[in-house]
Nucleic acid binder design. Structure first.
Lengths: 196, 196
DNA sequence: TTGTCTAGACGCAACGTCGCGTCTAGACAA
DNA sequence: TTGTCTAGACGCGACGTTGCGTCTAGACAA
């Protein structure tokens, strides 16, 4: 009864296969049928998992999406670490544009931006768990390049990041696609690279 | 509110008071309690109107919002027409930033961007009825200034508009606010005014 | 008469919660 | 080693609630 001293474990551990099935089902449903098809019941059905299993581990379907986004973008859109060159930065933002417009995980990012707009709780954890940590890495990337003399932007690192990701995200959100040269033009215009 | 206390039943023409009550109720509910509180039933209650009256005139609550946005932004964020100076353009984008971050109608804009992300039908009419016409006016504003020699941007008019509105909208969407000097810095950096 | 209005019932879908019975796996005594 | 005990994960399916969008029914103005 008193679990205080009875500190032991026992019972099955969390089913890793179920966890992954849920994550993939959510991702797939979003990409294949859009956000409106993304119901908890549909995720459960697709994952071959009981609804309660989802509610046991995630407070809402949005947190499921957030987990998929965190895993996917760590894999597919890593922020360069260490000394970054102007070339690295340009490459990162090019990959970012590609991620947002073509990668399924980019769809998830856009959906979460949208959902955060409707729900304060979503906004909070989206910031804390995704946007903030990522922004910190991006800031470090810019700063390291500035320190090394690779670039000398007229704006603060944060403003530079917003000035490049902002238009890309905005165009993706409004479904107008990102023109091939836009990222390069923005990077050229904002970073004023001395070399590379 | 139920401003319709003086309201005797209207006849066989559409009731203008009901129309406005619905628009204002939707706007108010969104601003006061967020998008999740914006249900058709709540709008009807607040407007003092039967649910059926809403469905008779609007296909969905999103179209109600779109109507409020179109009316409000025509009033409160008009695009300069005719010969525009660099100053006019800077002023417009400053007002745009203010609109998006502080005006209640700006909340509506953000909500519709978000909702368009979830629903293709919303996206379509949002583009056709709001974004596209507005973009055309903005493009004309930029073009007229370029033609008059007031500015000589390195990017196309569309890219300039995206490069300025993009970061503003992105920051507003991610709830980080728009730093005071951001718009000016972007305008300076992108428009390269020869005069003004 | 016609068309709009209010009022509210209707069926539907998804929500989040609950109880039930089954299964899994570590703990422990014989 | 073997068998039993136990905690927790899991699937299944029902629950009440909410909001949707549709549909009557009656009141009323032009």
């Amino acid at each position: 009864m008193t679990t205080a001293n009875r500190r032991t474990h026992s019972g099955s551990r969390r089913d890793e296969a179920a966890r992954e099935a849920v994550l993939h089902a959510a991702d797939d449903l979003l990409v294949e049928h859009g956000f409106s098809a993304l119901t908890v019941e549909a995720i459960a059905r697709r994952a071959g998992v009981a609804k309660q299993t989802i509610y046991r581990w995630w407070p809402s379907k949005v947190e499921v999406l957030l987990d998929t986004l965190i895993e996917d973008s760590a894999k597919r859109l890593p922020v360069p670490v260490g000394e970054a060159t102007a070339k690295d930065i340009r490459g990162y933002f090019r990959r970012f544009a590609r991620f947002v417009t073509r990668d399924p995980a980019g769809q998830v990012l856009l959906a979460l931006i949208a959902e955060a707009q409707h729900n304060p709780g979503t906004a909070k954890s989206f910031h804390a768990r995704y946007l903030r940590p990522r922004r910190e890495q991006e800031r470090a990337m810019i700063a390291s390049c500035v320190d090394a003399g690779g670039i000398s932007p007229a704006l603060t690192p944060d403003a530079v990041i917003d000035a490049i990701t902002g238009p890309v995200v905005y165009r993706a959100l409004t479904g107008t696609g990102v023109p091939r040269g836009l990222v390069d033009a923005l990077v050229d215009d904002l970073l004023k690279p001395r070399s590379g």
